[in-house]
Simulated scan of single mutants.
Amino acid sequence: MQIHLHPFTVHKRVPLTISRGTTAETTNLWLVLDHDGITGWGEASPFSVRGTPQTTEAIAQALQTFLPNLDGYTPFDRQAIEALMDSHNLLSAARTALDLALHDWLGKRAGLPLWKLWGLERDRTVPTSVTIGINTPDAAQQRLVDWLATVPDVQAVKIKLGSPAGLEADQAMFLAVQEKVPAGAKVSVDANGGWDLEGAIAMSHWLGDRGVTYLEQPLPVGWEDALPRLRQESPLPLFADESCFDRQDIPKLAERVDGINIKLMKSGGLSEALRMIHTAQTHGLQIMFGCYSDSALANTAAAHLGAFATHLDLDSHLNLTDDPFHGATMQQGRLLPTEKPGLGVKKSEA
């Protein structure tokens, strides 16, 4: 196998603010794997959750150090390659780039898109949400208006709360955005760990009275022991995001939340995402997929598993001014992978 890394910088059309800060641009990594005349693509994007940030520089260094260990391996050796990644404690985002490329290569070798290779029903895919970051009420409302003007058939809206300005600021922003939500569209809230327990309990009732469908990561990482009380008192289903990286986290959360948010950069790729899905299903948990500052490459990869999800939040690439890739397409508010083999991702036209 020949593997090359290519950094690329993407810029958000509208910077996204959450409880932990604002992101306007990121430099991601494009991994290109060549073997037997077939090329597989993967992506790693930086993120900072729970411990040491996975920066672009750290991910690139991890891959450059690890890749020489793959001499003599082929894309058919996924189990052996996973064992190598385990033994080297490879960063999850670095694992994701390689894992996606291996899956893309295999799908192209088989001549089938991944969703069809796995025997999934693409039409089960639910609509993906568009995300409204923390802002003033007027600016947040305008952000939704802009989304509705650029993305057809929006059927789900995710509102980021957990403002450092407090619960009153959260409520004012929510009410402003709600005024512009299309009739029949589902509304969810993600606090990104921005509330304490009492605030989360109060907001869960306030949001429940206003038709919100679920509440994501209401409490900070490290507050998982407070989740049972919140779940008991909350009228809304609770989803864990930052508190859930991989399948090992799921049994500990199973009695504390109603669902988990799988992100490929946290999980380490599609291989672990599939294991997380089956583990979550075993525990009776709902499943959603989310993203960081991912391009269409990584979001298309996640979309291949969309048939398993109760909720989807794969909109980061829709907010980029310079996405170098094109893959899954928006149809009736749903992000659907195509019939093209592998991931079905191509370079965007200049």
Score class of each variant (00 low, 15 high):
Q61H: 03
L16F: 12
S92Y: 08
R109K: 13
T22W: 06
A62W: 02
D34E: 10
G21P: 06
D123F: 11
L102F: 11
R109D: 08
S92L: 10
R109G: 13
L33K: 00
D77S: 14
L84W: 02
R122I: 04
T39R: 11
R95G: 05
P68S: 10
L67F: 08
L102K: 01
K12R: 07
A101R: 06
N69Q: 06
N69I: 08
P46A: 11
A110Q: 05
R78G: 03
G37N: 03
D36A: 14
R20S: 11
R109C: 02
T23R: 15
D36V: 04
R78T: 10
Q79V: 15
T65A: 04
A62C: 09
L117V: 07
Q54I: 01
V49F: 04
W30M: 09
Q54R: 11
F76H: 10
A83Y: 13
T27M: 04
E82I: 10
N28Q: 05
W115S: 05
L114H: 05
L106A: 05
L106M: 12
G72V: 12
L29Y: 02
A24W: 11
A24P: 06
T39Y: 01
A58R: 13
H35S: 12
Q54K: 04
L29W: 03
Q54M: 03
N89A: 12
T17V: 14
L114P: 09
T52I: 15
F47K: 11
T22G: 09
T26E: 13
L63C: 05
I59D: 00
P113Y: 04
G37F: 13
L90H: 03
D77M: 15
W41K: 00
T56L: 08
N89L: 11
P15K: 15
G21S: 04
W30H: 14
I59H: 00
E57H: 05
A83C: 02
P53C: 06
L31R: 14
D99Y: 03
F47E: 12
A101M: 09
G107L: 13
V14M: 14
L114D: 07
L120A: 02
D86C: 03
L90E: 12
G42S: 03
L112V: 02
A62H: 10
T39V: 05
S45G: 15
G51V: 13
K12N: 01
K116R: 05
